[in-house]
Design a protein around this nucleic acid. Structure first.
Lengths: 221, 221
DNA sequence: CAAGGCAATATTGGATCCAATATTCAGCAT
DNA sequence: ATGCTGAATATTGGATCCAATATTGCCTTG
């Protein structure tokens, strides 16, 4: 059986619930700190509690929800210190990923990145915040996957997703969307020249700016 | 309710199963690549499949088992390339943890590390492989926790545990146990002098040696 | 009126049953 | 013999029910 065939199979209830939960947390429909009532959620999603609980275990492993025995699951709340830690760890891991990626980058990889960047720019131009977040994530993950280190990429992706609930605030600002587009162009340009140090530097700046923005946004709470 | 009280509560079936599964994988009772038959395992552990499946989801998130829908869970097999990747990521994360830890290290922390090191040496002297692995893990995690970055520590711990099935091979050799004791002493000595670079260097050497040993051991398969 | 305890309720943990899917194997055609 | 087909079996996915635990709120008592 090919993976194509596997993907064509109807998703299990658990996969469906997992996707729904991610979206609910990302979009803020389930707010940080809120308890997750299994009965209500299961009924809303028209599944039993069994697949729901397995999906929650997955999310617990990814740090999107916390869990206490006999008390249940809660949407994880990230303090400013938590956010800084996540971004610092990403900095360490992404530097490695970019350096390895630059060392192996093919022209086909660059083409794929260009294509994704066009999607980012389209979404930015339309002011479509959700599409912007999706395309931006794809751009970065496409780059990191070029490193050929699947575990490293997976860790980065998990860290990335763990701050989704906060990232949407960032893209709300039109100025930030424009900035992201420019920074991506700078990164792409460095990648074309195989200038690893520059590529790392642009991504570090990218991240640092996001942290600074989040700090001022969260301070206003 | 205090966490003391929470710990006193009898463990849930799921917690019990999780611990049992970890041990079975670590000790090689469940071999890499082997399918995990839920019915048989559940009966053996005297629980239903529900808590077993939730425990398996947790282990999937930690990379100890893999999962395919409708086919079930399998003990993860790590190729040499996989092991190298895990150790490389640990190198990146542990360097950060050690530097942060050195910057914050108190005398009480040093005392705790000394104490743990005594346990390591006792176990090494007795040739107790399992106790050695346990004490060694505690020594490193105690150090990393001093960094005050809980997510970072958690990531390192997960990566550490993901190679447990292979680490026991390493400690089987008496010479390696002696070497670990010596390397720990060097690390401790550097920590006492707050010499971050030296501490990082000793740990890097520690890890590099483990990788080299595993390479020769796995090549012989 | 405040604080503690106890019953009532809500919620999670786990067992069992059935459904959906995958695997195995016997029988058959080539 | 080899490869295919389909029934029989094995295994996982999910729903429902009950048990164990936590939470709530009323009532008592000081």
């Amino acid at each position: 059986m090919t993976s194509e065939e596997a993907r064509r199979r109807p998703p299990t209830a658990q996969q469906f619930v997992l996707a729904e939960l991610r979206r609910a947390i990302t979009t803020g429909r389930l707010r940080p700190g809120a308890p997750i009532r299994q009965d209500a959620l299961a009924e809303e999603l028209q599944v039993s509690r069994v697949p729901l609980r397995e999906a929650l275990k997955t999310l617990q492993g990814e740090g999107l929800v916390s869990y206490q025995a006999h008390r249940g699951y809660f949407v994880e709340t990230l303090s400013l210190a938590d956010l800084r830690e996540v971004y610092r760890i990403r900095e360490l891991l992404e530097e490695e990923a970019v350096r390895k990626a630059v060392a192996r980058l093919t022209d086909a990889d660059l083409d794929r990145l260009e294509e994704t960047q066009r999607d980012v720019e389209d979404a930015a131009a339309r002011g479509d915040v959700l599409a912007m977040a999706t395309a931006n994530r794809l751009f970065h993950m496409t780059l990191f996957e070029c490193a050929g280190m699947p575990r490293l990429t997976r860790l980065i992706r998990t860290l990335w997703d763990s701050t989704d609930a906060y990232r949407s605030m960032y893209y709300g600002e039109g100025g930030n969307r424009e900035r992201v587009v420019k920074e991506h162009r700078a990164t792409l340009e460095a990648l074309r020249r195989r200038a690893a140090d520059e590529a790392v530097a642009t991504l570090d700046a990218h991240r640092a700016h996001a942290v600074a923005e989040l700090e001022s946004l969260l301070a206003g709470d």
